[in-house]
Design a protein around this nucleic acid. Structure first.
Lengths: 216, 216
DNA sequence: CAATCGTTGTATCGATTCGATACATCTGTT
DNA sequence: AACAGATGTATCGAATCGATACAACGATTG
C-alpha cells in the first residue's frame, strides 16, 4: 500500500521523505497523514529491494539539488507569492529516486487485484489511474463498485433494526449516505471512461474538457 | 480504539468474538471489517486487564447461553423470518462479559481526547455518544469539526494546483466533497444538541422524534 | 446414509502501520 | 545572541492487518 504510493510519487520526480508525506496528504486524497514510523521503514524496504536509490543531497551538491528543485518549483512559486517563509528542502538530507526495477514494481503493484475492500488503497489506485490501460481502469472501478454495492445492501438490511439510539443511528445513516455517493462517483468515472473510449461523435468537442485526452 | 469498541458492545450484552465483529460492521458505522488478528488479541488484552471475563459456553450450559441468547433474540427473529438457516451461536465457545472495571475503562476511553484526526475513532465515539454528558458530546463534535475545517482549508489551497491529471483531480475533488458533507453532518448533530438542551418552546413536540429523550 | 460444501467460530503468525518520541538543522523574530 | 517554530530524519513498542489453519455444525445432493 505505502510502497505503491511512494513509487507513484517518485515516478514524477525525486523527493525526500518529508515531501512524500506532504504529497500523500495533499495531492492524493489520503486524508489521514501517514506516520513517519511507516514512511521511513517503507523507504528503507524499497531501497533494499532495489526499487529506489537514496541520493545524499548535502549542502553543496548541485546536481542532486537541481533535480529535487525541479519537481518542487511549481509549488514554490505558488506559495512564495502568498507567504514569506516555507523553506524549500534546500540542504536537508536524503533524496530518493526511482529505479527501473522500481518502475516495474509500481506497474505490478498498481495492477494487482486490490485485496480487500480498502478505501485508501482504492483511492490511491485511482489517483494513479493514468498509468493503467483503459481496460484495467474500468475493471478497477467496476470491482470497487461491486464491493460497495454488496456492502450497501448488507448494511441496509441490517440497518432496519430499531434498537439503535439516535447517535448510532445517525452514524449508520451518514455512513450509508457516504457509500451511496461513492457509488455515484464511480458511476461518473465509468461513464467518463466509456465516453473516452468512443472518440468520434457528431460534435467534435462538446463539453470542452470532457473529450480532452488524459492530461499528464 | 478496538478496546473502546469491544467494551461498548459488551455494555449491552454478552457476546462472543465472531458476533462482536459483525456488530462492529453492522451496528456501528465501521465499513472496514476489523480482522480477527486484531480482535482476539484485543479480547485477550482486555481479559488480562480484568475488563472482561470469558465465560465458557459449552454445549450444555444453560445460564451462560441464556444471557447470550437474550441479546441476540431480536436479530434472530428478524433473520429467521427471512431465511431458514442462520444458526445462532448455540454451542460455540467463549462468551465475553464486561466487568465493573471494564465499565470504568469504557467511560474513561470514551471521554479521552481522541488523539489524532482518526475518522474511525470519531465515528465510534459518536455511536456511543449516549453514554457521554451533553457537554462532552458537544465538545467531541466541535473538536472534530475544527479538525475537518482545518484539513479542508489546507487541502483546498493546495488543490488549486493544476498539475494533477483528471484521475488524481477527481479523487481530490471527491474527497473534498466528502469532508464538506462530514462537516454538514456535524453541524446537524450540533444543532440537534442545542435543540435538546433547550426543552421548552411554543410547540411542545413539533417534529415528533426530535424532542424525544435519547432512546436507549 | 455419507460425501461434500458453506457458514460459523476460535486462534496464531509475520508484516505493516501507528503514535510517540528524540534529535539535528535552518529561518525568522525579539 | 537567544529563542521559537518549521523542516527533516530516525527509531521503538504496540496495535492492526491479511493470510492461514483448524474444528464443528447445517444443508444439499448423490
Amino acid at each position: 500500500m505505502l510502497d505503491l504510493a511512494i513509487l507513484g510519487l517518485l515516478q514524477e520526480g525525486d523527493l525526500h521523505g518529508y515531501e512524500i508525506r506532504r504529497r500523500l496528504r495533499d495531492s492524493l486524497g489520503l486524508m489521514a497523514n501517514i506516520s513517519f514510523g511507516s514512511l521511513y521503514p517503507a523507504l528503507a524496504r524499497l531501497e533494499s529491494a532495489g526499487a529506489v536509490r537514496g541520493i545524499e543531497a548535502g549542502t553543496a551538491s548541485p546536481l542532486a539539488t537541481g533535480a529535487a528543485m525541479g519537481s518542487l518549483s511549481g509549488e514554490l512559486a505558488a506559495l512564495r507569492s502568498k507567504r514569506t517563509a516555507i523553506a524549500r528542502p534546500k540542504k536537508s538530507k536524503k533524496v530518493y529516486r526511482i529505479t527501473d526495477a522500481g518502475r516495474a514494481l509500481f506497474t505490478e503493484l498498481l495492477a494487482a487485484p486490490a485485496t480487500s475492500d480498502d478505501a485508501r488503497g482504492f483511492s490511491l489506485r485511482v489517483s494513479f489511474a493514468k498509468y493503467l490501460t483503459p481496460e484495467l481502469r474500468v475493471s478497477l472501478l467496476q470491482r470497487r463498485r461491486t464491493q460497495l454495492q454488496d456492502r450497501l445492501s448488507e448494511v441496509c438490511t441490517a440497518a432496519q433494526r430499531n434498537d439503535l439510539d439516535i447517535y448510532a443511528r445517525s452514524v449508520v445513516d451518514h455512513t450509508t449516505q457516504g457509500v451511496r455517493q461513492d457509488i455515484a462517483w464511480l458511476d461518473a468515472l465509468l461513464d467518463a471512461e466509456r465516453e473516452r473510449s468512443r472518440p468520434d461523435l457528431t460534435h467534435p468537442n462538446p463539453g470542452g474538457q470532457t473529450m480532452a485526452p488524459v492530461n499528464d
